[in-house]
Design a protein around this nucleic acid. Structure first.
Lengths: 315, 315
DNA sequence: AAATTATATGTAAACGTTTACACAGGTGAT
DNA sequence: ATCACCTGTGTAAACGTTTACATATAATTT
């Protein structure tokens, strides 16, 4: 490994000068700067990130927390973060929390131990004592008091779901709620319920866990009494579609099903899933941008991105 | 941040002693060791990974290269690696290469700059000068001369695909090949072709890119003349199923389709996709284990994991 | 009792950067 | 001619660890 010392010797100046020349920090004569850069090029010098991180106590690594990368929503987010990161000479460390607060805490500690430049979290759900660290934190698709966040317009998304379903003729609607404690899911069902009430449509809500249990127990005939089902995300919708197919219920004739996310797969399931598209990739990209803004002292603001309805065959 | 220095002051010994006590390296009296650990606990001391990595020039971070985390095959692999990593107090940095050699090289450089403990790559396709680094490298689902690798039994998988299809009555078979240059895909089509020949079944092969182009151009009627289609992976099979549905071709009656990977989604597409299951998560887990073995000087060996046929409705 | 060895601890250098500070020479204003 | 200031460079400390080496005491061998 060629170090800054080698460059110094090669050019005949001190390491301090080399550092200044390379980083354009402090003074460095044009001539010396040129020679340093030339030598760096020639010897294929690459700065050691670790040494730099130790000295500045801030690495160019950001920590990313997701519940489970195996859920196809998150790879897209991560890809957005990663692409933005690499463009800015940053890298990401990812951690799967499995909705487990202890795991989350453990990862936060790890990020700190690695002098991470900040954290982007899609798992944060509560105000935390513990995070007294000064490093910036961006919440992704989660809104928590006193934290900067980026999300898509979940309330609007929920409304769009409900509006479309009623427009397609559903008048007995089931709203399947998402996992509790996450603002995004709460807002979706809130928006949907609000819209259904406005239209005077009959509806019930079902907690996420109940549906999961019903589906695995095979006791989901409960949902057969509805002719419209609003799902909190596409993956849940896939399961519902599957269950309906097994029960020989015609979709969309007897029941209309709408999802949320517009994952790539939603066009491959049968029938093609009507859903709400949110700009997942951009959520990740922008989240990283906000982190950079914060690190540069700019006053970053929370963002809300727009969503739109994608019509397919399931409604 | 409480450092080793604070502990030293607290306990009344030197930093060297503290370090030895914490790491159980070198001598440390039971009494001192106890007091150091107690103080570490009490002051909530957490070692700074960066400083450690600088000193030992080896961090507990491993680099992971994948073509694109958005492809649902890879999150599973990554999850396997990540779970194994965290159990061993390691973390992972991931890089998406988009099948681009330059990106791959760039990431390798980054991994080196971060003193990574090793690299697990699902993108490696050729013997490389460049990788003269001594750090261990595990190839995942890729076999390249002179490198340690882990893969599933692709040859067998290909054979299983072909055997099942013929057993279901297909006698005009199309083998869609995977992206060139990757041994795993080559072996799959090789196995399939071999088996078809053994059974005296008529077949053709189609390069991956051709199919992709046909599907996006809408000129894929070429594949309608077959009654059995062997896909290199599940995602490709989804697209084929979709195309067939749009052309009103009955699956499995007129054409039988078989995939490869057994992604979670394959039970949600319609008709449910018959496919070859490979232990994706375990591939990742074991890959990390092999890396650890190498780092401990144990002579690691390449591994080949078993695959099996998953029957569903598409055949 | 002397010599050897094992145990325990401290001192200081090292890892590869960045940066506060000191210093020197040059420029321009007074 | 004096002073202030800007530019360019070097010296050395710092970031938080690990570890080679030196030293000191205790335990064991001869």
């Amino acid at each position: 490994m060629v170090t800054i010392k080698d460059l110094a010797k090669e050019v005949g100046v001190s390491v301090a000068t080399v550092s200044r020349a390379l980083n354009s920090s402090g003074y460095a004569s044009p001539d010396v700067k040129r020679r340093v850069l030339e030598a760096a090029e020639r010897l294929d010098y690459k700065p050691n990130e670790v040494a730099r991180a130790l000295n500045t106590s801030c690495s160019n690594v950001v920590g990313v927390l997701v519940p489970d990368i195996t859920n196809p929503y998150f790879p897209k987010v991560i890809r957005g973060i990663e692409d933005a990161a690499i463009e800015n000479n940053y890298r990401i460390i990812i951690g799967n929390t499995d909705h487990d607060m202890d795991k989350e805490s453990k990862y936060l500690e790890i990020f700190r131990q690695n002098n991470c430049a900040g954290v982007i979290s899609a798992t944060w759900s509560v105000e935390r004592e513990e995070y007294s660290d000064k490093r910036p934190l961006i919440l992704l698709d989660r809104v928590v008091e006193n934290h900067i966040s980026i999300e898509s317009d979940n309330l609007k998304g929920g409304r769009l779901q409900a509006e479309h379903l009623t427009r397609q003729g559903a008048d007995k609607v089931l709203i399947v709620k998402g996992p509790e404690a996450y603002s995004s899911f709460n807002n979706r069902s809130l928006g949907a319920a609000e819209m259904l009430e406005a239209h005077g449509i009959e509806y019930e809500t079902l907690p996420y866990m109940h549906l999961e249990r019903m589906l695995s127990d095979g006791t989901a005939d409960f949902i057969l009494k509805f002719n419209g089902i609003i799902c909190p995300n596409d993956v849940t919708a896939y399961k519902v579609l599957n269950m309906l197919r097994e029960s020989d219920v015609a979709v969309p004739r007897s029941v209309k099903v709408i999802g949320y996310d517009n994952l790539d797969f939603s066009e491959y399931v049968y029938p093609g899933l009507t859903t709400i598209e949110q700009p997942i990739y951009e959520l990740g990209r922008n989240a990283f941008g906000m982190l950079m803004d914060l690190n540069e002292g700019k006053p970053a603001q929370s963002q809300v991105l727009d969503v739109k309805l994608i019509k397919r065959q399931s409604t």
